[in-house]
């Protein structure tokens, strides 16, 4: 049976392609970008998010845990021993304050489709549909292909949101069932790409060139992290590269925001990029102008939009 671990299903996802959409966030990513604001989607294994700010130290979670990972100390304060946690998810139901969240429940394509298609009437009316995002959905090409095929029977729009860091075979598995690819270009410089994302951009850019020749419409997504990928040189080279590709509908900028920082703590991790800041509107405008100078269409974007876009796990 084909399954994939699901981080979240988000209805009314209005910035992941045309119209009103539902987006499926799969868990697991071959990259680990230091600015990632959804760190819970990096590891493919299930994880428990402990939202400490919501915990009221009621202790209701303690008896639900088979491994005594939850408890109260002498002062009555909740203690979570993550080393004992096997992420079974049993405590999620016990917590009445939404402080414990299990992430990574496996689903079959038809289970996912059922949830996503709950809003099929909205998709039909608005020209929207379903987006598969991640993590990196192409870690699960069979799952994606089957899901897209099921959704396709309802004649709604289908989009795939990918980092591009995948085997071409995975792309070719899903392309015939995909109406739009949202494709990340994070850094045009390979050395920097390796440093900040943990992987080379070579397969990504190769895949992008190859994808552009297939005829499927591509929307480029660029995270904007001041000091990392915003120099004029980087933007010019990116613009030049993209401007030569056919079938690119445009570029959407995703300005960095610090909201993901809490999530690292919820996962018991240190933020990989604690010092980063959001780009100013002036910085964004300059990037837009540069890209437009290469004849590219840049979708209107602003900081808040990016915040909304990148919040799958709730």
């Amino acid at each position: 049976m084909i399954e994939a671990p699901v981080a979240a299903v988000k209805p009314m996802a209005v910035h992941d392609g045309p119209g009103i959409r539902s987006t499926l966030f799969l868990k697991g990513c071959p990259l680990s970008c230091c600015w990632c604001h959804n760190p819970e989607t990096i590891a493919p294994e299930p994880q428990l998010l402990f939202r400490d700010i919501r915990c009221v130290d009621c202790g209701r979670c303690a008896p639900s845990c088979p491994n005594q990972a939850h408890g109260l100390d002498e002062s009555g304060k909740h203690v979570f021993d993550r080393a004992r946690c096997v992420a079974c998810g049993a405590c999620e139901e016990a917590c009445l304050h939404d402080a414990l969240q299990f992430c990574g429940r496996p689903m079959t394509p038809s289970q996912a489709a059922e949830q996503l298609l709950e809003d099929v009437d909205f998709f039909r009316v608005s020209g929207g549909g379903v987006t598969i995002s991640g993590g990196e959905p192409l870690l699960y090409p069979d799952f994606c292909a089957e899901l897209l095929e099921i959704v396709g029977r309802e004649r709604v729009h289908r989009a795939l949101d990918t980092s591009g860091f995948a085997d071409w075979a995975a792309f070719s598995r899903v392309l015939s069932e995909t109406d739009l690819v949202l494709f990340d270009v994070k850094h045009i410089d390979d050395e920097a790409h390796r440093r900040y994302t943990g992987g080379s951009n070579k397969p990504i850019l190769d895949n992008l060139e190859r994808l552009a020749d297939t005829g499927v419409p591509i929307e480029i997504r660029m995270p904007v992290i001041p000091g990392i990928n915003t120099s004029d040189d980087v933007i010019q080279r990116t613009g030049l590269f993209l401007s030569r590709l056919p079938n690119v509908t445009g570029v959407r900028l995703l300005p960095f925001h610090p909201y993901g920082t809490d999530k690292y703590r919820f996962l018991g991790q240190a933020p990989a990029l604690p010092e980063a800041r959001s780009p100013s509107s002036g910085e964004l405008d300059a990037i837009v102008k540069s890209l437009e100078g290469h004849g590219l269409n840049v979708f209107d974007a602003d900081v808040e939009m990016a915040q909304e876009h990148s919040r799958p796990a709730h």
Binding site: V14, F122, D302
Partner: peptide, 25 residues
């Protein structure tokens, strides 16, 4: 609705989509 959900050029179209779907139902 949160403003970010309807920001940008497509925002009005999304509101229209919600209305039309509700009416269809």
């Amino acid at each position: 609705l949160h403003p970010s959900a309807v920001r940008g050029a497509e925002g009005a179209r999304l509101i229209a989509g919600l209305i039309k779907t509700y009416f269809k139902k």
